[in-house]
């Protein structure tokens, strides 16, 4: 194989100061205003409820909720509480940590289509209680499988998407 041209940069060159390294810690902090729709959604989570809105025009039930329909461009005022259960739209088995090292136990991100919401509408979350190996996980999970939320105890909930610890396969 032809060697790459140029001189490769080594970790040693960076650490030893052989090359110029400039450090800056950005202080990029934000306090986002959640607004009407997402504030109500987060309040709902704190109360152990999944809230959605319903567009008066296309009749879609939207979660996470919004106070306008992005397709019909109409304001929405109708709120509905969803049962919380749903079905798997798609999932992945993630083996990568933030620092690019490999995880021993994979994480399972999932898109859950929520019961009571319109087809294709749902939330991004994690699957739990699905085993620790790829074989176990892919053996248990399938697209379309029913799932249900596992909530944190009321005292630990803070009005965040993590108030649902994870989703697990529905029994039966």
């Amino acid at each position: 194989m032809e060697p790459f041209s140029g001189t490769s940069l080594t970790d040693h060159a960076l650490v030893s100061g052989e090359v110029l390294l400039s450090f800056w810690q950005p202080k990029a902090l934000y306090r986002w205003d959640a607004g009407v729709a997402i504030s109500a959604f987060l309040d709902g989570l704190k109360a152990g409820k999944l809230l959605a809105t319903r567009c008066p025009e296309c009749r879609r039930t939207l979660a996470p909720p919004r106070v306008f329909c992005e397709l019909c461009f109409r304001p929405i005022g109708d709120w509905v509480e969803l049962p919380g259960a749903g079905t798997i739209n798609t999932y992945s088995v993630s083996y990568v940590n933030w620092d690019a090292t490999r995880r021993r136990t994979p994480e399972v991100p999932v898109v859950v289509e929520l019961d009571g919401a319109s087809p294709g509408i749902g939330i991004l979350h994690l699957m739990g209680e699905v085993g620790t190996t790829l074989e176990e996980i892919t053996g248990k999970l399938r697209i379309g499988a029913p799932v249900q939320p596992v909530w944190k105890p009321a005292a630990e909930r803070e009005g965040a998407i993590t108030d649902i610890r994870y989703f697990r396969l529905a029994e039966g």
Binding site: W32, D33, A34, G35, V36, I38, V67
Partner: peptide, 10 residues
């Protein structure tokens, strides 16, 4: 604080 950026733009 009463509206999100989405709601403001809408």
């Amino acid at each position: 604080p009463e509206v999100s950026f989405r709601e403001l733009i809408f």
